[in-house]
Design a protein around this nucleic acid. Structure first.
Lengths: 197, 197
DNA sequence: TAATTTGCCTAACAAACGTTAGGATAAATA
DNA sequence: TATTTATCCTAACGTTTGTTAGGCAAATTA
């Protein structure tokens, strides 16, 4: 169990992610996952410890990718607007890059068992803090206005997370375009330039 | 089964909504729902036809409330900015008014069985169209700028739906304040008034 | 060649699931 | 008072669930 068997384990997790996304974590059975790989349910246990372990792997893998990305953005010394743009772009790329895992990450993390659940929530908060940091920067640079930072971050992340609900890899919008539109939307909103009344 | 028994049925649906929210539709069993009411699982079937029926009732009840609200907004003859503000306010009020049902409505609708699922998606699309209509009005009035209307609506709704993930009735933010902040955020975004560079 | 590891199998388990059948009790209605 | 209705019960059903035990064949390693 060093390098070769990892490959099969990754296949299992990939198939599981697809099914967890389609049917939900509880509704997708070990027999379903096994069937999608053409093997018996019991055979899965040569590679994984439990169904819960699969969910944990998916959720923490995604969390790791996102955290790494936001840390990198915050470490590089750019202005706040650029940082926000990069953070959005990274998030969109990661999410659209693996829609199955992302959907599970966003919808099914609640089904994690207690000790892992707490750990996961900690990572989530860390990610949110990464965005808060950018908003603080923006205020110091006098380019952002966000009295309630927690609220602003939640609203921004809602748009980012909601992508898993509608993004279609075969659709006409590329991840880059989504990121661009989203950044523009977050920065300027709907109203046209001129203020009136 | 005319008016009196409805009361008990509503109690069941209310208890079920709470559990569906906490544990998810599949993880919350009929025995769990019954236990939370102090009765046996089999007794539930004097009042409801099936577990699926409970989910359907919750999802379609919420959909009905939201659709009614957006239709009212679009029927009343105001300008687009006012309409958007009212639509947001109504949505926030409905969602925060019943967090259990709302969470189920947003997270668990996927578990609806096939004929009902299609019906539900139709209602969802109708609601989205209600918002699109407002954006179209705004463009005609020359106060909104949204080249990709579908994208804009999805982004707005993401913020509205995400409320179920963080709103705390005991928190310091009232539904009205949330609606106000959200409307402002959608209309003007983060950037401060003056454009620079 | 011999020994070990990998990847799958069949068989089975105990538990939990949604749901039905049939009956009891108490309240509402006639 | 007689009858109906509402609400709950116990017992049981057939299925599906995640998981374990034990074994077998092929590939890998020594």
């Amino acid at each position: 169990m060093q390098t070769g068997s990892n490959s099969r384990k990754e296949q299992i997790i990939e198939s599981a992610a697809k099914l967890f996304r389609e049917k939900g974590f509880e509704a997708a059975s070990m027999r379903d996952i096994a069937a999608s790989l053409g093997i018996e349910a019991a055979s899965l246990y040569s590679h994984i410890k439990s169904k819960d372990e699969i969910l944990e792997t998916i959720c923490f893998s995604m969390a790791g990718k996102l955290l790494k990305a936001i840390d990198e953005v915050n470490d590089i010394y750019f202005n706040a607007e650029e940082k926000l743009g990069m953070a959005v772009k990274n998030h969109v790329e990661i999410v659209t890059g693996d829609m199955d895992a992302s959907s599970v990450f966003i919808r099914e993390w609640r089904r994690l068992k207690k000790p892992k659940l707490k750990e996961f929530i900690k990572l989530r908060n860390k990610y949110e803090e990464g965005f808060t940091q950018i908003l603080v920067n923006g205020e110091n640079e006098n380019v952002f206005e966000a009295p309630d930072k927690k609220f602003a971050v939640l609203t921004i992340l809602s748009a980012l997370n909601w992508i898993t609900e509608w993004y279609d890899p075969k659709g006409k919008m590329t991840p880059d375009e989504i990121a661009e539109h989203l950044t523009k939307f977050i920065l300027t909103g709907l109203r046209v330039k001129t203020l009136h009344s």
